[in-house]
């Protein structure tokens, strides 16, 4: 409503959403990473956010999709696809037609093969740069976005990427807001027909509920019985550590400092 927002063109962002699976009950729900992606897009200043889903619309996953509408959206674009179809061509065509500046996705689907490949294939097909494991978008200006990428061990890296770009969201991105029931009922699913392409390879694979992975055994390769016994009875010990006794605090601190330097943990 403010005059400034009317003059600067809005940033077009599309979030690709999917139907998730509750880890305990197995029921359909908002996919966690996709919901984080929606939250991230909503927090962008001056952005026009659209939701896009390609897949099958059934009675069980409609409520899951409406969960995204409950985050403050009026419509969700839905590309109708048969169950188990390869949704890549349909998504690529839709994105080429609407040409948004930013496309945000989760890292891996919670159903189906879940190989996490879709954003990469989409980026390759559209010829856009792709940034993975996004934690936050710091700013978008002059056709470039400054992003924070989540690294393991809670670290962050700052990247600058030219738009249009594809971003995948990490689990450390801000938690999604709750879905409000009223808006989720009132919102519209804007269904469009799209060309479907069958995923033939998937049909050939054997799929079963996940088995527990066997625990790795500690294999002791010893030549004598004594070595085997020692290995089995050994206490977990680093051994061979350096002990500094009778040193002044300064000498001790110097030794610790050297080790910290070697390990490169001091910033």
């Amino acid at each position: 409503m403010q005059p400034e927002t009317a003059t600067t063109p809005a940033l077009e962002a599309t979030v690709l959403v999917s139907v998730g699976r509750h880890p305990v009950t197995g029921r359909a729900r908002r996919a966690d990473q996709d919901a984080r992606g929606v939250e991230l897009a909503k927090s962008l200043p001056n952005a026009r956010v659209g939701l896009l889903y390609a897949g099958h619309l059934g009675s069980d996953n409609e409520s899951a999709l409406r969960g995204y509408l409950g985050m403050g959206f009026e419509t969700l674009s839905l590309l109708e696809q048969p169950e188990g179809a390869d949704v890549l061509p349909a998504l690529a065509e839709a994105l080429e037609a609407s040409s948004p500046q930013l496309v945000i996705t989760g890292e891996r689907a919670e159903q189906g093969e879940g190989s996490g490949l879709l954003p990469f294939l989409l980026a390759e097909r559209l010829g856009w740069p792709l940034v993975t494991s996004l934690a936050a978008v710091e700013s978008v200006e002059n056709g470039q976005a400054t992003l924070l990428q989540a690294l393991p061990r809670g670290q962050r890296r700052r990247l600058k990427v030219r738009l249009p770009a594809l971003l995948t969201v990490d689990a450390s991105a801000p938690a999604p807001r709750q879905s409000a029931y009223g808006p989720s009922r009132r919102g519209r699913l804007d269904t469009r027909a799209a060309e479907a392409s069958e995923d033939t390879a998937w049909a050939e694979w054997q799929v079963q509920p996940a088995r527990k992975r066997p625990k790795r055994l500690k294999i002791v390769k010893a030549t004598s019985a004594r070595d085997r016994f020692k290995a089995a009875a050994a206490k977990a010990e680093g051994g061979g550590g350096q002990v500094l006794s009778d040193v002044t605090p300064e000498e001790g601190a110097e030794a610790i400092f050297k080790l910290l330097r070697e390990e490169d943990v001091l910033r």
């Binding site: 689907a109 879940g114 190989s115 390879a201 054997q206 799929v207 079963q208 509920p209």
Partner: peptide, 12 residues
Amino acid sequence: TRGAAESLDIQR
């Protein structure tokens, strides 16, 4: 391989 958020085993 593991698929669908660690809930499926896919043999291929």
